[in-house]
Simulated assay, not measured.
Amino acid sequence: MKLGAFSLSLSVKDINASKQFYEHLGFVVFGGSMDKNYLIMKNEHTLIGLFQGMFEGNILTFNPGWDENATNLEAFDDVRAIQRQLKNKGIAVNPEADENTSGPASIMVTDPDGNVLLIDQHR
């Protein structure tokens, strides 16, 4: 199963304070917008997303079809194929992607400890 680029999506209280903190750790802004209350930050191959007021808790995020530079990958597993594999293994998917569509879609699963995984395909 090819899940694509990995990042940790952090729910932050103050995006400015969080941005400054992660800059001190060597992260630089890679994407997003302060005006939209989210930033994607990068340090070498490590990606984190800072999201203010968008969701509760932190989320493990995977982007099928992208590498850590948001460059399109030639070969990748479509999120709907990943969804089928997970469901065949008895893993609950909520929300699910519409199997009758193609292109961008996302699904979420929760691990046994309550950690949320977002599999978010952008293409």
Rank of each mutant, 00 (worst) to 15 (best):
M1Y: 06
K2T: 07
L3C: 04
G4K: 11
A5E: 11
F6G: 07
F6L: 07
F6W: 14
L8D: 06
L10Q: 07
L10I: 14
S11Q: 13
S11W: 00
V12E: 01
D14Y: 05
I15F: 00
A17F: 09
F21Q: 11
Y22S: 03
H24I: 08
L25I: 00
G26L: 05
F27Q: 03
V29N: 01
F30C: 01
G31M: 06
G31P: 00
G32K: 02
M34K: 07
L39C: 04
L39F: 08
I40V: 15
I40F: 10
M41L: 07
M41G: 04
M41K: 10
K42L: 02
E44D: 14
I48G: 00
G49A: 12
G49T: 13
L50P: 05
L50Q: 07
Q52M: 10
G53S: 01
G53V: 04
G53E: 01
E56I: 03
E56Y: 03
N58R: 12
L60E: 05
F62C: 14
F62T: 07
N63L: 14
P64T: 08
W66V: 13
D67S: 12
D67H: 10
E68P: 04
A70H: 13
T71H: 04
N72V: 11
A75R: 06
D77I: 06
D78C: 08
V79P: 13
I82G: 04
Q83R: 07
Q83M: 05
Q85V: 03
Q85H: 13
Q85Y: 07
L86K: 02
N88C: 02
K89R: 04
K89E: 06
G90L: 12
G90T: 02
I91M: 09
I91T: 04
A92T: 15
A92Q: 15
V93F: 06
V93C: 09
P95Y: 14
E96M: 13
A97W: 04
D98E: 08
S102F: 08
G103H: 05
P104Y: 02
P104H: 00
A105S: 07
T110A: 08
T110L: 08
N115K: 13
V116S: 13
L118N: 15
D120G: 09
H122Y: 15
R123D: 07
R123Q: 14
